[in-house]
Amino acid sequence: MTMTAEAATESVQAEPNDSRRNRGALDALIRLQSRFPVIQLLIALFAFLLGALTLNGFASANSIKTVLILSALVALAGVGQTLVVLIGGIDMSVANFLVVGAVMVTQLTGTYNISFIVAVAILIPSTLILGGFVGWLCHKFKISPLVATLAMGTFAIGLMQIQTSGMIAGSVPEWLGGLTSTQSTTLGLPFPPILVIWALVTLVMAVFIHRTVAGRRLQMTGANARAAQYSLIKVRRIWIVVFAFSAMLAAMAGIALAAFSGTVTTSIGGPYLFQSLAAVIIGGTAMGGPGDYTRTVVGAVMLTVITTVLIGHGLGEGDQQIFSGLIIIIAMVIYGRGRKLSDRV
């Protein structure tokens, strides 16, 4: 059976049209992914469904609350890290400042017989000064943030150990534990306070990064610091402020971490350095941008759900690290192929 000339012409015309439609759909998906981490969200949903089907009680209300609380801890530890990455840096002092915050409101309140409020009032300016000094040092002398933040984190832990005579082993007040308890409520709502705090932080960060002049200047600094200076943006001031807030926000997240853990040790913040940084990278925030905190939130949820499912199926810590490492590599490959924010300015 032979094809007529007219049918052949229609077939040739239809093929390019189908190809154009496919390319159009792919381009639309890429544009959507550049605005919001759809793929990461879908992976998180798939992992949750897998857990619900294969693990007893995984989809229960208490289990979902626990996963959200764990996600909140990772995401809150990554607030400052997100801002630092957006300006092209990295903060390796997050783990130590988490410990500083936890120790300040647990152990030192008893050591110096001060209230929780007074401890927080001392914690905030202290961490702002330490973090801001790192930002100034890195920009002024072109020191790698990786090295400077590691040094400052060690310095901060040293200060705490001097206050505690070298022994960091605080216990959390019962009332503070309610901050992260699955049985706690907030203004009558069946959610623990940490989830409400997390939601408010997410909203504030979204508005700040995308809807304020300061947020736009921060993004411009990360995209092209020299061009930002020519635009009369005080780049050094931005570095100082960002690193100052990164230290302070990590210390405040340490309070929530202490409430969740119940006890405080020098190693309490270690896992959260890796997980918070992984959440930033997996979410799709690149060094110098583009990116935002919403991506970190999705990355934290995705990472937590996958890790919880892996633990439920009996995978050890080594297996989890391997799996998480593979996810980060894949994310870096995907986002490394995209256009940098500096190429768009």
Score class of each variant (00 low, 15 high):
36 F>W: 14
86 L>D: 09
112 Y>G: 03
344 R>M: 14
66 T>I: 09
20 R>K: 03
55 L>Q: 08
93 S>M: 03
122 I>V: 13
209 I>V: 12
237 R>K: 13
146 L>W: 12
44 A>N: 02
319 D>W: 14
240 I>E: 10
124 I>C: 01
130 L>Q: 04
141 F>R: 05
334 I>F: 15
98 L>N: 09
99 V>M: 04
95 A>G: 11
226 R>P: 00
328 I>W: 01
221 T>E: 06
154 T>V: 15
345 V>I: 13
106 T>L: 05
339 R>I: 10
263 T>Q: 08
207 V>D: 04
225 A>V: 03
183 Q>M: 05
42 L>Y: 01
171 S>Y: 11
7 A>Q: 14
256 A>T: 00
50 L>C: 10
173 P>S: 04
79 V>L: 05
290 P>A: 09
286 A>L: 14
254 G>D: 07
120 V>E: 04
308 T>G: 08
320 Q>K: 10
20 R>C: 00
85 V>W: 09
54 T>R: 12
149 T>C: 03
142 K>I: 02
71 S>D: 11
193 P>E: 00
117 I>G: 03
304 T>L: 07
314 G>D: 13
326 L>Q: 07
243 F>G: 00
50 L>H: 09
298 V>D: 02
50 L>G: 08
32 L>T: 07
324 S>T: 14
280 V>L: 02
237 R>W: 14
7 A>V: 09
81 Q>E: 15
156 A>V: 13
59 A>F: 11
263 T>S: 08
88 G>V: 10
104 M>V: 07
113 N>T: 12
130 L>I: 15
227 A>K: 02
314 G>V: 13
252 M>L: 15
283 G>E: 08
5 A>S: 14
342 S>G: 15
10 E>F: 12
227 A>S: 09
310 L>M: 15
183 Q>H: 07
303 L>W: 09
89 G>S: 05
32 L>H: 08
1 M>L: 09
15 E>N: 01
21 R>N: 02
140 K>Y: 06
38 V>E: 05
149 T>H: 01
189 L>F: 12
205 M>D: 01
136 W>Q: 00
166 G>S: 08
35 R>I: 02
87 I>Q: 10
179 L>T: 06
173 P>M: 06
277 L>V: 10
163 Q>R: 04
228 A>C: 07
334 I>R: 10
244 A>H: 01
141 F>S: 02
122 I>W: 09
243 F>P: 00
338 G>C: 04
95 A>F: 12
335 Y>L: 04
154 T>W: 11
236 R>Y: 04
8 A>L: 13
6 E>H: 13
16 P>T: 11
183 Q>Y: 06
99 V>E: 05
293 Y>A: 00
79 V>S: 06
236 R>A: 05
319 D>V: 03
116 F>H: 11
297 V>R: 01
334 I>L: 14
36 F>A: 07
294 T>P: 01
243 F>Q: 01
44 A>C: 06
82 T>G: 08
102 A>Q: 03
344 R>L: 14
315 L>M: 15
1 M>C: 07
75 A>C: 09
163 Q>F: 13
187 L>T: 03
160 M>R: 10
321 Q>I: 14
332 M>V: 15
